[in-house]
Design a protein around this nucleic acid. Structure first.
Lengths: 345, 345
DNA sequence: CTGAAAGCGCTTACAG
DNA sequence: CTGAAAGCGCTTACAG
């Protein structure tokens, strides 16, 4: 039941070359001929064979996406942005969530070879530069959320440090001197950058950094819960906690509730990521909003550009700004975003 | 810089056919020859051209996934299960989140044609049967979460109705007579099945159904919040609320808090989905646990099976059971899952 | 504007 | 166990 270009050609009374020209409209084709070809193709339900086409053109109109995991609010939003943009641009997405350790990431990249026109690498926990060695030189590459460095790839990133610094500055400005940090995993570049922003903001102020106030979680609720218990166990209590993710902030709130410590009255809390749930926890959670869908969209656009230019030309470095979303958990009621926003459709 | 089978053959002093045999190990090859080929291939960093291979075999070792959206806790867990299983089975995943309306779903399916060996369709909001018409008959298809019907495809589903009924039965058993439902969208089959389970459980009991207690949300926190406000506005107050998703349950809790109604003392609440955040909200949320990762894994396994059998043979229908996770929000402290579970790594 | 022909890189009967 | 040859379905200079 597979229809080939030959049969369409025969049905339309033209050569296969002409059918090809109609479908790719690369050269002018006589209007009447084109119409005949199109109607024959429609009648036969002809769909060009992708394999044959990419064998000869060595193009696949497919972009590979290497990502550490597909679950997780942030990454799935990025995927959403990627996917929407890909559809608009006529590209397919070949995904692999093998970006955990560099050996499986390398395997995944190798397996994509020849199947994609370029690869978007999202690897906060992995240095992508060694991976690039695996790829043929002419392969288009976009790195998402990688610290800027000398590389032959385009980079699209979130301004993690700036967002974190803005939130911590906000806390400082409102009188907090003992601001704890629930950091993310040290091997995660997003986590490192947010921690950097925390330190930057403290450094700008007259608040001395106190390492006893720094604990580490794994970006999950449970991790934030555990980290907060450890923090409280030290006896040196903060007046505010900045968590490097909303999930950890929510876990922290849960631990504080258990310890009967009032938020925000006794301890203020702020998170990072601005998940949809942030405004519905109690108290509503102040957070740093991250343009994750936009990040995905931009990454795909840069990829399309890189493919078109065949790796030639300068590589762009984009850094997207975050915005502060102030709600009740940090004790400063400047915002009207909490209680929950009303929709009036 | 692309190395072909010919160059490997030449370097190893054999014919291209032999190189092919080594790589596919379909027929026995002399050990010494094999070693020579392998080392030549490694030296040249040869990677077989996927397009050429699938042109001749008409196999792609790629599975298409049509999904309504990539964000959202549930679907991203399903993707996780799919992806892990695919990697294990040596398959690639070509994803498209175009399963919103049937016209874009059709486009997406058509675009996948020839690029995949089969398609996994996840479309709670879309009847997949019309879509199947788009596909060539020999195409392997696995439907995820589709109501069982006469179809030429394998089906993998969650027992939504059973899970919902179990939760509502639990509420009834503990004395609730006025149990409200925050249903999901009517055009979503998961939502419909959960609603069905709610009605089944009530029907089994001596509790009369009261349509005033049924409101509808859109599976989001905001939707649950709004639905609960509408519910409270009617004046006929329930003693318990069953929400068809955890996000809506969390929105409901936020609305009750605003209305100064105590959970679970004045109104008990239960959700569906058992998101990670469920045990960290206040009070911790009772919910129906859904084996979403397993759902994805199983769907991929069924697909591998279907591809191997080329659409021949009987189609399996799998239905995965859900489990009740009782925490504090429904007022029955039978569980030790809340306060938050401790990890001792 | 259109056709005949070569060729993309592989796999697979068919011989030996 | 191995090789020569045909062919998968397309695209693209090259002529006309």
């Amino acid at each position: 039941v597979k229809v080939t270009i030959k049969e369409v050609a025969q049905a339309a009374g033209v050569s296969p070359a002409t059918v090809s020209r109609v479908f790719n409209d690369t050269v002018p084709v006589d209007e009447e001929t084109r119409a005949r070809v199109l109607s024959a193709a429609a009648e036969l339900r002809y769909v060009p064979n992708a394999a044959a086409r990419s064998l000869i053109t060595s193009r696949t109109t497919t972009v590979g996406v290497l990502i550490p995991e597909l679950s997780g609010a942030f990454l799935s939003q990025v995927m959403l942005g990627l996917d929407n943009a890909a559809r608009r641009r006529g590209f397919h997405l070949l995904v692999s969530s093998a970006a955990r350790d560099s050996s499986s990431a390398t395997d995944a990249l190798r397996a994509m070879r020849g199947r994609v026109d370029g690869v978007i690498i999202i690897s906060p926990q992995l240095d992508p530069l060694p991976l690039l060695g695996e790829l043929p030189d002419e392969q288009a590459v976009v790195l998402v959320g990688t610290p800027e460095r000398q590389t032959s790839a385009a980079i699209v990133a979130i301004d993690n440090a700036g967002g974190a610094a803005a939130m911590v500055r906000h806390l400082v400005r409102h009188g907090h001197r003992r601001i704890a940090l629930i950091a993310g995993p040290e091997d995660d570049s997003d986590a490192r950058e947010r921690r950097q922003g925390y330190m930057t903001a403290l450094g700008e102020s007259d608040v001395a950094r106190d390492e006893n106030l720094e604990v580490r979680g794994d970006f999950t609720e449970d991790g934030g819960y555990e980290a907060t218990r450890r923090l409280l166990a030290t006896g040196s209590r903060p007046t505010a906690i900045f968590a490097a993710s909303d999930s950890m902030a929510i876990g922290a709130m849960s631990a504080l509730r258990e310890a009967q410590i009032a938020v925000p009255d006794e301890i203020a809390i702020a998170g990072f990521g601005d998940l949809p749930v942030a405004r519905h926890v109690d108290p509503s959670l102040s957070s740093v909003h991250v343009p994750s869908v936009e990040l995905g969209r931009l990454a795909l656009e840069r990829m399309v550009f890189a493919i078109a230019r065949q790796g030639q030309g300068a590589h762009t470095h984009d850094r997207l700004a975050c915005t502060l979303v102030l709600r009740n958990s940090c004790g400063v009621h400047e915002s009207n975003d909490a209680p929950p926003r009303r929709h009036h459709p």
